[in-house]
């Protein structure tokens, strides 16, 4: 039995063993092993020159990572929580993402920025943002977000080996999810979506923390509505596996995008637009979105209003154009 945290930890350790240019640093990642224990034991095994704590300054952390990359290192930095990554945004958008282009490829920035993200953990304010859309819109960055334990291992290893910078979004609420697998895990690489549940009536397109939710909703839709629901896990937002989205929607003719990120100008809007542009003649209904609300992430007592739920997904499925209107079983 392996947890997602263990898979991420093993991915970091294996990458550091395989490549001495990999260095890991951030806030509390050394002695403590990270507030989520993802870097547990790395300082002990690899020494304080390979995994270490830094002053508390996110822009500085990413900024020094840029300098290290200029010298051929592969820094993997941890932002302690989603909303605490914002101070580093200037370094990410102006340097990490652009240095390769600015220098016509003379300088690469093979930096991985790990961001624990998303809600559903009862966190007080500033601990539950889904900011992946902000980064997905910055040319030069890749954006990865695993939903399974195997993917956590495989996608992180791939991100570290990637010559391009990757913002690696780790769904906090899945940190303690488990799988019966052996490490090192195997899975397809980045840029490829995976069908987690095949279906023929409608496709739920989703990623990261919303994948288990979509699977639950798909089971409920089968049980309650007799619908055969496909669940497509996108796995990486940049690059996006457009072919798999187009293929699935062309087959089912209906789609709903499920994300925790807010709806307006968010990843779900991009995915819906893509499906409309490419699958217009196959569509029996407009692509719909079930997303976080366009409000600041609420306090724990209110977060059930914000988060996509099985209920909201089922309501949206019902609301798609069907030849025979549905009535829900119970």
């Amino acid at each position: 039995m392996v947890t997602m945290v263990q898979a991420l930890n093993r991915a970091l350790g294996d990458a550091m063993r395989a490549d001495p240019s990999v260095v890991v640093f951030g806030e509390d990642v050394g002695t403590l092993g990270g507030v989520f224990r993802v870097t547990d034991g790395l300082t002990k095994e690899f020494g304080p020159d390979r995994c270490f704590d830094t002053p508390l300054a996110e822009s500085g952390i990413v900024g020094v990572a840029v300098g290290m990359a200029m010298q051929g290192l592969r820094p993997v930095v941890e932002m302690q929580f989603d909303a605490f990554a914002y101070p580093a945004f200037e370094q990410v958008a102006s340097h990490v993402a652009k240095l390769r282009n600015r220098t016509r490829g003379a300088v690469q920035t093979p930096i991985v920025i790990r961001v624990p993200y998303g809600g559903g953990i009862g966190g007080v304010e500033h601990h539950s943002d889904s900011s992946e859309g902000l980064y997905a819109q910055v040319p030069g960055l890749k954006v990865s977000t695993p939903a399974t334990v195997s993917d956590a291992y495989v996608l992180l290893r791939e991100a570290i080996a990637d010559p391009d910078p990757v913002v690696f979004f780790e769904p906090k609420r899945l940190y303690w999810s488990t799988a019966e697998i052996d490490l090192p895990a195997s899975a397809p690489g980045s840029g490829r979506a995976e069908i987690r549940r095949p279906g023929s009536d409608v496709t739920l397109m989703t990623y990261g923390p919303s994948v288990p939710l979509a699977l639950e909703a798909a089971d409920a839709a089968t049980a309650e509505l007799g619908l055969d629901v496909e669940v497509l896990d996108l796995r990486t937002l940049v690059p996006l596996d457009e072919a798999s989205i187009i293929d699935s929607i062309s087959r089912t003719g209906r789609g709903v995008v499920v994300t925790e990120a807010p709806s307006f100008a968010g990843p779900a809007a991009e995915i819906a637009a893509l499906a409309h542009e490419h699958c217009f003649y196959s569509l029996a209904a407009p692509i719909r979105r079930v997303t976080g609300l366009d409000i600041p992430y609420p306090p724990p007592a209110y977060e059930h209003h914000y988060l996509p739920s099985v209920e909201r997904i089922l309501d949206t499925l019902l609301d798609l154009e069907w030849e025979e209107p549905f009535t829900r079983a119970a």
Partner: peptide, 26 residues
Amino acid sequence: PVASRVAPQCTPLATHLPHAVGVAWA
């Protein structure tokens, strides 16, 4: 920049200063 050991001229003010620290560290 690597061959000349001169970083690209930086316009976002002061953002190149942590880069200098990273280069020296590495």
